[in-house]
Design a protein around this nucleic acid. Structure first.
Lengths: 238, 238
DNA sequence: AAGTGGTCTAGACCACATT
DNA sequence: ATGTGGTCTAGACCACTTC
């Protein structure tokens, strides 16, 4: 059973994306939306707050709620969600395959122990793979995961989708990831695996991922081809 | 007068950042926090939801609220806010100066009109500047802003802080920005201005910024030195 | 002054995990 | 079965802009 605030947010979101509510148009007052949908003020407020954080509308106390002055392509961009997904889930219509460069269990080095907040000398998976989308090299991933948290991990999971195994196979719930993006020149090895020229740039995504228990289960460094990498975000003041 | 939910969020945030609440520790139940702070459940929930979106805690219905398994440096990272700020505001302890490469008013080209959602042929400022932090070249900015929205703009504002003029000088309120990061090799001109070698990478930030009225007031392309660029984000599932 | 959105309450009931 | 956090209500009062 869908929550009311999600239903209302979806209804208004659709009217904005289809230009039924136009750019810069004032939305109905919260009071009127309450009667329209037969809900209380807190519920309408929560629905509108979702759209604010999605970047679709702005609210001004004393003045009203307005659709952002969104250009056509901005609307298209915002239509795709900005959730945290793996490569497989982000490319559902494409063939995502991996070549395993390395897959072993090691004693956690100091650097990894610090990132994952685990004792030094604990055992972690050490995974190194190249991911291909429709046959073209896309990203090199170096991942470390505590073996206790991800039991029975096999080659086949790494060749297909790791996150699918964790969520569907193990029934664990991924809650969030903290990611930092930086940029540098590709190393010789990276150029080879990603089919780049020696001096081409790459984007580096350093990530720690967490379960809904709060436990950190993955530290990874992903090296992306520069020409297939981009990341969008919405920044707000306060 | 500070809102209660912000006060409560700050109090709990501080206890997490100072390790008074430890990694993986279970927080008091919402019910108990209500009596501790003498507030209702919705207020406590709102305070905790802030900390969830900041990446500090996780909540699980039926099970409780837990501090994330944060490594030391993750805690330091999260201590600095992820709000939308200009270069000047992001470097309050440093000297931020600009060299103006170009500053004129032009008829808006089709590409800019589309981004800012304004009629073609409207007049826009066309600003091109290099920003220096403590004397070192940091970023090249190409910005376009409708002249009606930013009156009386002068060289001096562009040499110092544009956002300071917009917010303090004009009293306009900046609400948000939509930003997309990509990567490529520097052009010859970019290398010169940023003191890079010809084949070095750069990070490109394409941005549209909005007032709290919903109006788009700025389209910009920023070219960052690769070795001084990084961006952090927190991604969540659902 | 009137009307907007923001905050807060004291309850109620629900969905979910396990103390 | 118990107790968690999630949703929702029907109000109240406050902060802010000027519809």
């Amino acid at each position: 059973m869908a929550q009311k605030y999600r239903t209302i947010a979806s209804a208004i979101r659709n009217r904005i994306l289809t230009r039924d509510f136009e750019a810069n148009e004032q939305l109905p007052f919260e009071r009127d939306l309450c009667t329209d949908y037969g809900v209380s003020k807190m519920t309408v407020k929560k629905a509108l707050d979702m759209l604010v954080s999605e970047g679709l509308i702005v609210k001004r106390r004393g003045a009203g709620t307005y659709v952002k002055d969104l250009a056509g392509e901005e609307i298209d961009r915002l239509a795709v969600s900005t959730q945290f997904r793996g490569t497989s889930a982000l490319n559902p219509d494409k063939v995502v395959r991996s070549k395993i460069l390395d897959f072993k269990v090691i004693e956690s080095p100091e650097i990894i122990s610090k990132k994952l907040n685990i004792p030094e000398g604990s055992f972690v998976y050490d995974i190194h793979r190249v991911r291909y989308i429709d046959g073209n090299p896309h990203v090199i991933e170096k991942m470390y995961m505590p073996i206790e948290l991800i039991p029975y991990l096999k080659n086949s999971h790494i060749e297909s989708s790791l996150y699918a195994y964790i969520e569907n196979g193990l029934g664990l719930k991924i809650q969030s990831a903290h990611r930092r993006i930086s940029v540098r020149t590709a190393s010789a090895l990276e150029s080879e695996y990603l089919a780049l020229k020696g001096t081409d740039p790459v984007a580096i995504a350093e990530q720690i991922a967490y379960f809904d228990t709060g436990q950190a289960f993955e530290y990874s460094l992903s090296t992306h081809r520069y020409d297939e990498f981009s990341v969008a975000m919405i920044l707000t003041r306060e």
